[in-house]
Design a protein around this nucleic acid. Structure first.
Lengths: 129, 129
DNA sequence: TATTGTTATACTCTATAACTATA
DNA sequence: TATAGTTATAGAGTATAACAATA
């Protein structure tokens, strides 16, 4: 189990590095498929809001995302991906083929069984298999 | 799969924090069950030797490990855990019950099946199940 | 010459605390 | 008063480069 998690984590880091991103940056970029606020993002990633400020600043400097004003709440910001951000995120996801490669060695039945066991071991339903 | 890996990583980090360690520190401490050199450790963790120097310095400051001279090669150091280091590592492992908790919700047959699938998905044998 | 380990330095992630602007 | 986000700051992980001691 440890080795599996380790391999997964490494694959994620390598894929991010291939696109000059850190794990944290790839993670944030991947979670802005729709416009959203920074507080929301900090809650989802269970980290302090000041982290998000910094990571967003780095992604913004590369023009991968933009911070727009929110007309409904003038304290808040709406994060959106630029077309370049969309493209880089898609490229990152193609690079991060760990899940696909891992699954490719299993039959369809085995993939279903694995998803089922992981879900049960986790004790709660996963968002997507 | 992502959620499973995420939960595993979080459990590891929380367990380390419960004993005032970072993930990197718990990882290094856990890998010195027998005396070993720093180059060896850096290779296993796939990081630069200078990282090991720093992490070891922090563990040594807490008297959890010691750096001994190696009579066979006077350039090298042998890292060993102190009794306090052994005790803390054991306590950490008890705290990191993710694997046990996760497995507890599975039957013995399911546990075997999961280990088998993960091994196959990983494409190489795991060191220990 | 090559290797082990250290030091200096720089970048990033992360959190805390203090702050501004808005609700 | 409470919340969204920023700024300043500090500790830790990480890598690179230069170095000393030894092989």
């Amino acid at each position: 189990m440890f080795d599996f998690v380790d391999a997964y984590d490494r694959a994620y880091e390598i894929a991010a590095a291939q696109h000059d991103m850190t794990v944290a940056q790839a993670c944030v970029l991947g979670r802005i498929s729709k416009p959203r606020g920074m507080r929301d993002l900090a809650d989802e990633l269970r980290c302090d809001a000041s982290n998000i400020t910094q990571i967003v600043a780095r992604l913004e400097a590369r023009e991968l995302i933009e911070r727009h004003a929110n007309p409904e709440d003038r304290r808040a910001r709406q994060l959106i991906r630029t077309p370049a951000g969309d493209a880089l995120n898609a490229a990152f996801e193609r690079s991060f083929e760990f899940a696909r490669n891992a699954s490719a060695t299993l039959t369809a039945d085995e993939q279903n069984e694995l998803a089922l066991l992981l879900r049960k071991a986790l004790g709660q339903p996963m968002v997507d298999g």
